[in-house]
């Protein structure tokens, strides 16, 4: 099992945002984490990556306890993270952003050929500053940067945010390709139901920092379920 989380509590200072979360993600699985704004989805992702400390509970990656491990060491174990807002180094060139991804997985060499197979536009923009790319290109670079390393588990935080609908579909296809061609395991936080339908094998629903339901991909397609858990009228 790539990721096992047990009774996890985390937050900011003494304020507990994520509370008693227990979840696991299987090999090659795409797990969606859904819920309304402010329920702790991003806090959960940051805790899994190591950018927020674990207050209580355990996080295991490939049977290794990483609960107290520094974020940079978790990344070198193979946990790739694409944060909300993409987290690009906007003043660095596209090429330098790819260099920054090469330590993910701990091999330390840039796998540019694979990146350009997935995202050919990045090869054309290699010397351009990341901040000058369009929103869609920036999202491709955020994915490409992770692929430049050797990730085994990818954590995606709202990859469709601020992206045109046609590019959201493309992101869905890319996530599927990452699973099928690279065998990657994916945890995706998302509010875009279309994208969740397209990619997720399973969904967990969060509310007030806790997991309140677990749904199959088919269940989330039901309008009543979506309305109940995301407060979205479909």
């Amino acid at each position: 099992m790539p990721l096992n989380v047990s009774n996890l509590y985390s937050g900011y200072g003494r304020v507990r945002i994520v509370q008693d979360v227990t979840m696991s993600v299987g090999e090659g699985e795409i797990l969606a984490v859904i819920g309304r704004n402010g329920v702790g989805k991003t806090t959960l992702m940051k805790t899994l990556v190591g950018l927020l400390g674990t207050l209580h509970g355990t996080i295991e990656f490939r049977d290794q306890d990483i609960s107290r491990m520094h974020a940079s060491r978790r990344a070198r174990l193979g946990i790739g993270y694409v944060p909300q807002g993409r987290g690009l180094f906007t003043r660095l060139s596209v090429g330098d952003n790819l260099v920054m991804g090469e330590r993910v997985g701990g091999i330390g060499a840039t796998n540019r050929r694979r990146v350009f197979q997935f995202f050919p536009i990045l090869e054309e923009r290699l010397s351009q500053k990341a901040g000058s790319l369009s929103g869609g290109e920036q999202q491709q670079l955020a994915f490409g940067r992770i692929l430049a390393g050797h990730p085994e588990l990818i954590l995606l935080d709202e990859p469709s945010e601020g992206i045109q609908p046609n590019i959201v579909q493309e992101i869905g296809r890319i996530i599927q390709r990452l699973r099928h061609e690279e065998g990657l395991t994916v945890v995706i936080v998302e509010q875009n139901l279309e994208l969740i339908h397209a990619v997720a094998d399973r969904c967990i629903v969060m509310d007030k920092g806790k997991i309140i339901a677990e749904l199959t991909a088919d269940e989330i397609k039901e309008p009543e379920v979506a309305k109940r858990y995301l407060a979205i009228a479909t």
Binding site: V49, G50, L51, H70, A71, S72, R73, A75, R76, Y81, P83, G87, F89, T90, R91, L92, D96, N97, V99, M100, G101, R103, V104, G106, R145, G149
Partner: peptide, 18 residues
């Protein structure tokens, strides 16, 4: 490259293994 990236966003540099 690592230094320039760290200057811009140290948290993200950490999350990428630097």
């Amino acid at each position: 490259t690592h230094a320039r990236a760290t200057m811009e966003d140290p948290e993200m540099a950490d999350a990428l293994g630097v």
